[in-house]
């Protein structure tokens, strides 16, 4: 089978071959869904927002610059979708972080925790972060993006991103060990 990288596929989409979007969807939709899920804590909303991203990719395909990486462009769109969602649902925002399945146990030492409790504690610690810090952790740790890529997505310099990641990790560490 012929192999296309993400940029080749997106270029096809740009030129009107919408079927080329299918492999991109298959490759990225779970990552995107979890991006929204960890940041909104809501499955239905994350479902919609993921769909939204792919709709926008089609709608704005002409503006895709083939010199740029598809992945960074896609995350730019994802961020815009999320931002727009926050704007339109200001009153709901308090619900986003309502943990619909996270129930915090009483504090135990981290070493004694089972995996599930550790996860729950981590989610809670993440919830306490400022939205900007939560996003930077999401991009760098969960989405596995390099500083350079995050810099392209957010428009901050690589050096600034590095500082932000360090601060967010430090903050998360504080919350995590407090809760444990």
């Amino acid at each position: 089978m012929e192999h296309f990288d993400d940029e080749d596929l997106m270029l096809k989409v740009k030129n009107g071959d919408l079927d080329a979007l299918a492999p991109l969807f298959e490759k990225f939709h779970i990552k995107l869904y979890n991006f929204f899920l960890r940041l909104t804590r809501n499955k239905d909303i994350s479902n919609d927002l993921t769909q939204n991203v792919f709709q926008r990719i089609i709608a704005y395909r002409k503006s895709y610059n083939e010199k740029g990486k598809f992945r960074t462009w896609m995350y730019q769109i994802a961020r815009n979708v999320l931002f727009k969602h926050y704007q339109e649902n200001k009153f709901l925002s308090s619900d986003f972080y309502e943990p619909d399945y996270i129930e915090k146990d009483e504090k135990t030492a981290l070493e004694e925790m089972d995996l599930e409790s550790k996860k729950i504690t981590l989610y809670e610690a993440l919830r306490q972060l400022a939205p900007e810090q939560r996003e930077i952790i999401e991009l760098s740790k969960f989405q596995g993006l390099k500083y350079q890529e995050i810099s392209e997505i957010t428009g901050s310099s690589v050096a600034a991103i590095k500082v932000k990641v360090h601060r967010a990790i430090q903050q998360l560490k504080e919350y995590y060990f407090e809760l444990a």
Binding site: K31, N34, L37, N47, L122, I137
Partner: peptide
């Protein structure tokens, strides 16, 4: 521990919707 947090699989309807 951050590595413990794994991606969840979305519901099947996401694909059909797409």
């Amino acid at each position: 521990d951050l590595k413990l947090i794994e991606d969840e699989v979305p519901r099947e309807e996401m694909k059909s919707n797409f």
